[in-house]
Design a protein around this nucleic acid. Structure first.
Lengths: 220, 220
DNA sequence: CGTAGGCTTGAGAGGAATCAAGTGCGGTGG
DNA sequence: CCACCGCACTTGATTCCTCTCAAGCCTACG
């Protein structure tokens, strides 16, 4: 995780994050209301975080994958304020937060890193708010695909193909759309030869065309 | 800002946040792209933070008032990623971030506080995403008013009356609505005897009725 | 081979955006 | 002091996008 650090420092960090947890597909890492003790870094697998309202309606606030952090929401109130569910078999590192705090008091680079992680989350949420607040359905879906493939590419996967780990309904919940609208929009993109769909496998045939929709969204 | 601390610690903190800045109504505290050096705590006045796209279109990501923090978005990239504009004459405390980091390495309570502040921001953004992703216009406006009056009440103002510091257009930008829709929705709330409107002065006549709309939103 | 869940597609309804006047307050200058 | 102007706001009419309801399809799985 951290960047340039001494070997001894890295060993101390590893001691803190040594515990690992395997999470089966469909099971929950933590629930809304659970007492907060640790944050989690994802090693493998994809998660969703969602806020569930009293009567079972859910709003997905994000999808997280390898390298991403889960649980930062719990720091304020010492209780988690969302559910974190594995969309496929996953593995996370458990990072007891009080140990991380203690260590980051001594290691400036680690302290910086923690602050950057949290700030990054804030900036990411800003873009989601922009998406939810001012984009049309096709722009939302295009932005979603574009962002997702970029994140996957940064992790060594293809820059033009991806496999969705979530249902259309989950995508819709994240984008503020109904699943039918997501499906229709994807079909439209396929019809326009921008993507090709085979169930959850998406190939981006015309990356420039996709980017054009995303940019058009930025110019509204 | 911090809660229970020794006198000497408080003095050291005050030394760090001693510089103050007066911001005239309508002027900008920092712009998107400005190099990041400090965060700011608001002493008086109301701010808006907004992301501006290339061609001048703006999305407001939040309104901040006394006690709130501005600038946390700049930590990741060392550049601010939004504009912060004063909606009325305001005053802020400048908190050089490297000094805050240094101090929080020595004072556990301060370190905790910084983490809580950032986590709180993340949790707040979650609710905004919920609002933008799944509420109808009347639910958004009702939630906006309800939240705003709560925040004001926590600062010693009335729990049933408020003065909007922002235009209908700015409210709309924040809520993902057009200004006409905001205006119509407010008129509807007035017609239903839930609020009374005199320009930017809003009186909440029927708090229970307002809360009912907010809760209905949570149950969709 | 049958079923269930995820997905696609269609038709119709509804809510917000858009376009377009018109109002009222506050500030400016004659 | 008053008239004018601009800006924020309100309100109406129409359009368009997304939701809703509904039916049918496909694939994985028992």
């Amino acid at each position: 995780m951290p960047q340039e650090m001494s070997k001894s420092d890295l060993l101390r960090i590893e001691a803190v994050i040594s515990r690992r947890l395997k999470i089966k597909k469909g099971t929950t890492l933590f629930y809304w209301g659970d007492p907060f003790a640790s944050i989690y870094t994802i090693r493998v697998g994809v998660f969703k975080t969602c806020v569930t309202t009293q009567d079972g309606r859910i709003q997905i606030t994000g999808f997280q994958m390898a390298g991403d952090i889960l649980g930062l929401d719990g720091i304020v109130s010492q209780h988690h304020t969302c559910d974190a569910v594995a969309l496929e078999d996953a593995e996370v590192c458990v990072v007891p937060f009080h140990l991380l705090e203690a260590l980051s008091r001594e290691m400036i680079a680690l302290q910086h890193h923690v602050h950057r992680i949290m700030s990054q989350k804030i900036v990411q949420d800003q873009s989601v708010m922009l998406l939810l607040g001012s984009m049309r359905a096709d722009e939302r879906v295009a932005t979603f695909l574009s962002t997702l493939v970029q994140r996957l590419h940064a992790r060594g996967f293809s820059r033009s193909a991806l496999v969705l780990r979530m249902t259309r309904e989950e995508i819709g919940s994240y984008l503020g759309l109904k699943l039918e609208t997501v499906s229709r929009t994807l079909s439209k993109l396929a019809e326009d030869r921008i993507i090709a769909i085979h169930r959850r496998q998406i190939d981006i045939i015309n990356p420039a065309g996709l980017q054009r929709i995303v940019n058009a969204a930025a110019c509204r």
